[in-house]
């Protein structure tokens, strides 16, 4: 089976400082990869490089495109890359304000990606927006409300709906549950797990919350100081950590 995303020796430095170094991994269709690590370990740098928001210094990012098979996204032209990020990719920001248009209604937010790929039928766009709000448990009567009138959890769910409406194959998530209280977090995780399974999505989730990866991720990558120090199956890594840093990370979880 061809991996959906294949990363080889990816490095990014900020001047003399290392952002991330020599990262390699394969992500197969339907697989969820978690990236954990402390603040400043390079996980967000890595995610932004993968999603095309930052230009890596060296390395290859091969994405299995629908039409031409695996292609290096770094060598694609900007229009091609942006087209990918509107259709096959999705990016869920930690802060929904970064991923939503706060001055535009919920329906418009969900419809934007559809209109960006050429939908020009108001009735159909609206029907799809309504459908997607339902899937993320936002009632239909909030369709014309602005995100600023939504709670934090609803905003995050709206952001997810907006990203998934074009049926992407790969979702990047940067701390999707950060800043939410635990009960809302639990509902969001439940929803995400359902959507990922139902749509057969591949996802890369960056988080520092080990509970999130335990629940969602099949495989886990642990990063420290820009380097991947350990990777493997999630349960394996969490139950039997090999690297000293991973052991520290696992033992730091508060038990309630």
């Amino acid at each position: 089976m061809t991996p959906l995303l294949s990363v080889r020796d990816l490095s990014k430095t900020y001047g003399g400082r290392i952002g991330c170094a020599d990262v390699s991994f394969d992500l197969y269709p339907g697989e969820v990869l978690g990236i954990v690590g402390e603040s400043g370990s390079g996980k967000s740098t890595l995610l932004n490089c993968l999603a095309g928001h930052l230009a890596p210094d060296t390395g290859e990012i091969l994405f299995d495109t629908r039409t031409d098979g695996p292609r290096d996204t770094r060598k694609m032209s900007e229009p091609e890359r942006r087209m990918l990020s509107r259709t096959d990719w999705a990016f869920v920001h930690q802060n929904p304000r970064d991923g939503l248009r706060m001055g535009v209604s919920a329906g418009g937010n969900v419809g934007e990606r559809l209109m960006a790929v050429g939908a020009r039928h108001y009735g159909q766009i609206r029907a799809q927006a309504t459908d997607w709000l339902g899937r993320v448990e936002i009632t239909e009567d909030r369709l014309d409300d602005r995100p600023s009138a939504f709670s934090g959890g609803m905003q995050q769910r709206l952001q997810i709906a907006r990203n998934l409406v074009t049926g992407p194959r790969l979702v990047f998530m940067d701390e999707p549950t950060g800043g939410l209280d635990v009960s809302v977090q639990a509902r969001l995780l439940d929803l995400l797990r359902g959507l990922v399974r139902e749509m057969g999505l591949s996802a890369i989730i960056v988080t520092h919350d080990l509970a999130v990866v335990r629940l969602l991720a099949h495989r886990l990558m642990v990063m420290k100081s820009g380097h991947v120090v350990e990777q493997g199956l999630t349960d394996q890594v969490l139950d039997d950590p090999q690297h000293a840093y991973t052991q520290l990370l696992v033992s730091s979880i508060l038990q309630v």
Partner: peptide, 15 residues
């Protein structure tokens, strides 16, 4: 990339 222009028109109709 002009999808955004239609978002404005969409908002008009929705409101």
């Amino acid at each position: 990339e002009y999808g955004l222009m239609h978002v404005k028109l969409y908002e008009d109709i929705a409101r």
